[in-house]
């Protein structure tokens, strides 16, 4: 009988270590910081981990020492318990706490420190994100499921929810903040490296909670300004053939598209839908095929989604709508 070859000893722990270490980088890792806040948090993590490791090694060393050595005077033992068991742990814990508190003012928008330019309002809904940019010169841009930030500039985020509790977290850029119905929480972020980062909803919010994510794109400041200026105007492709179908099939009851009659506010704003990287809040690449699939049967892609299925529309209409939406850049 053939016996399955046993892996050499150590291969499984090594594989496990590789899997674990793979989590230390990537576009959704708090340890691969691309923002000032995330860098502080990563630093805090390493200081705490190192502090914990040193304490653990000390305790284990003491344990081995106690197990091996035979005789101790009672006075020496009492002294060791007092200093090693009470005074030292208290001092270490107070020290680590003080370090964490010392980092804290940089992680939250305290008072005037965050008196900045750009403000982004993000509102969580089951299962997508409304994003409104308010620039200091009065430009307002509405978008969804993607936020863009200028690298090197502090951005203040106002976080709200209009149904259940969601949580906003872009691990590569900063800490986590809940979005609570009836209240506005604030978070400030400063991206330090251009790139695209992923932010999952971090609080269970319903059936498709795991299918609710957003992309955060950090752009060089000039590119960001150009992008925002372009977003403030209707897409050049808005007048094409799909616009009439969009109106006729009633899509405008829920969705808004700048430059058309569509002013709906129940669903995501689609004014520049084609320029987004993903479809359906971070779960599919933004391609014409995927848009078609989503229009025809959104519930299949995202169970529990509020958008009804439009599979009864003529196949050709869905195709035209999808390619029109894809071109709204």
């Amino acid at each position: 009988m053939a016996v399955a070859a046993r892996p050499p000893p150590g291969i499984q722990p090594a594989g496990l270590a590789c899997l674990t270490l793979a989590g230390c980088s990537g576009n959704q890792s708090a340890l691969d910081a691309a923002g000032q806040e995330a860098a502080s948090i990563a630093q805090l993590f390493w200081v705490m981990t190192t502090g914990g490791a040193i304490v653990w090694l000390l305790v284990v060393a003491l344990l081995l020492y106690a197990a091996r050595s035979r005789s101790h005077s009672e006075a020496a033992a009492s002294r060791l318990i007092l200093w090693g068991g009470a005074v030292l742990p208290s001092a270490v814990v107070v020290g680590l706490l003080a370090y964490a508190l010392w980092l804290m003012p940089a992680l939250r928008p305290f008072g005037a420190a965050a008196a900045s330019g750009l403000r982004i309002e993000v509102t969580g809904s089951q299962y997508w994100w409304r994003v409104v940019y308010r620039s200091p010169d009065g430009v307002t841009v509405t978008s969804a499921n993607e936020i863009r930030l200028p690298v090197g500039q502090r951005v203040e985020l106002s976080l709200a929810s209009n149904d259940v509790i969601h949580s906003f977290w872009i691990p590569s850029l900063g800490g986590k903040m809940d979005m609570i119905p009836g209240r506005t929480n604030r978070l400030s972020l400063q991206a330090t490296k251009p790139g695209t980062y992923r932010g999952p909803c971090a609080e269970y919010c319903g059936t498709s909670h795991a299918l609710m994510a957003l992309q955060a794109v950090a752009l060089p400041p000039e590119a960001f300004d150009r992008w925002l200026a372009a977003q403030a105007k209707p897409s050049p492709a808005v007048a094409a053939s799909g616009a009439e179908l969009f109106r006729r099939h009633g899509c405008g009851a829920c969705h808004a598209i700048a430059g058309t009659e569509a002013k709906g506010v129940l669903g995501p704003d689609l004014s520049h839908f084609g320029s987004r990287l993903t479809l359906a809040a971070g779960i599919l690449p933004n391609t014409t095929d995927n848009i078609e699939r989503f229009i025809a049967d959104p519930d299949r892609i995202k169970p529990g989604v509020k958008m009804p299925a439009f599979g009864m529309l003529p196949r050709e209409d869905i195709r035209v709508l999808a390619s029109w939406l894809r071109r709204l850049e």
């Binding site: 003012p105 965050a114 604030r186």
Partner: peptide, 8 residues
């Protein structure tokens, strides 16, 4: 000691 302002 460390927090010098109210959070907004």
């Amino acid at each position: 000691w460390f927090v010098t302002e109210c959070v907004r």
